[in-house]
């Protein structure tokens, strides 16, 4: 069985999920949370937790797709903010062309949400494609290429906004950032749907299988006649897409966007992907486990916040869990091979 076949053929079995240490970690966190705080399982707190899981999970999903190909996307958080900034700027410009004022007093954006979302997604995907072209065709190391993108996007964000925030007003932002459907925040529902679709794409389509194959053994994949470059670009484009959706969820919650937001979120995305079992070397990883890791990560952080643990201990805990997850993944890999 080839690496691609092995990766793509991995079914979502209930027994497999129950053996998953992340699931047990999540269950443990929830039990401890419920036992130690009357607020942990309150509806409001669970919604907060799921919203946070959606944000970091969307970023981690995009990151995972790139990691599966054996690359990394450090520009993901910068892209998330920049794409939404460009969404506002371009939509406002379009409005002006049609004599409609979509930036009103106090730098408040009141433009068409459809145009804004479409422009944002196009921008995020375009940035992903540029990253992919740089990595695949120009042979720039993904670490360098996306680090350069990160810096450039942060700078361009300041140029596009002149350092000032855009306030986002409208029902669409309220719905995306605050609304709940059957007790589940809209952002988390969106996250689950996108993970389901992308999981299907990765595991049930030829293109998805080839992304795993490239990460497993790129040379072998190339020699088997697969044009690897276009798939690498596809992976970065998907990363850009997920970054933008994360940006829409993020800015809808804050009802504003500005250049300086979300600094360092790319590291959180990497951490969740790794906790979810995505190999930094590429070739393996399941988006369901990334979803589980995102919820576990958010649940753990939320528990520490409920306990009033200072943030530096929270960071320490994240680091410890990360090391533990990597060690366990390594142990599992060895025991299976």
């Amino acid at each position: 069985m080839t690496i691609a076949e092995r990766a793509s053929a991995r079914p979502l079995a209930v027994s497999g999920i129950l053996k998953d240490p992340i699931l047990w970690l999540l269950v443990s966190i929830v039990i401890v949370g419920a036992a130690t705080s009357p607020h942990y399982l309150s509806e409001l707190n669970i919604q907060n937790l799921l919203r946070n899981a959606a944000l970091v999970g969307l970023l981690a999903t995009g990151m995972s797709i790139v990691l599966i190909t054996g690359r990394i996307d450090l520009s993901i958080a910068a892209n998330m903010v920049f794409a939404t900034i460009i969404g506002v700027v371009v939509t406002a410009w379009i409005g002006r062309e049609f004599d409609v004022r979509w930036i009103v007093r106090g730098n408040t954006f009141v433009g068409s949400p459809v145009v804004f979302i479409a422009v944002s997604i196009m921008t995020g995907v375009a940035i992903g494609i540029v990253n992919g072209i740089g990595v695949a065709y120009l042979k720039v190391a993904s670490f360098i290429m996306t680090l350069v993108s990160l810096t450039a996007l942060r700078g361009m964000g300041y140029l596009a906004t002149n350092g000032a925030p855009f306030y986002l007003k409208g029902e669409t932002f309220n719905w995306l950032g605050d609304a709940v459907l059957l007790g589940v925040p809209v952002s988390f529902a969106l996250f689950i749907i996108l993970v389901a679709v992308t999981h299907f794409f990765l595991t049930c389509t030829t293109t998805g299988g080839r992304l795993y194959a490239i990460g497993g053994n790129e040379t072998a994949t190339l020699y088997s006649g697969i044009k690897t470059k276009r798939y690498i670009v596809t992976a970065f484009a998907l990363s850009g897409f997920f970054a933008t959706v994360a940006g829409l969820v993020f800015t809808a919650r804050l009802k504003s966007v500005e250049a300086a937001l979300a600094q360092g979120y790319e590291l959180t995305a990497i951490a969740i992907a790794v906790i979810g079992g995505v190999a930094l070397g590429g070739g393996t990883g399941s988006l369901w486990r990334v979803l589980l890791a995102a919820v576990t990560f958010a649940a753990g952080l939320n528990l520490l916040a409920i306990w009033g643990v200072p943030t530096w201990y929270q960071n320490l805990a994240i680091g410890a869990v990360l090391v533990l997850a990597v060690a366990m993944a390594r142990f599992q890999y060895k025991s299976q091979h």
Partner: peptide
């Protein structure tokens, strides 16, 4: 981290 501050307030 503005988002983290928001999360703290929500908690």
């Amino acid at each position: 981290d503005d988002n983290k501050m928001g999360q703290v307030i929500d908690t």
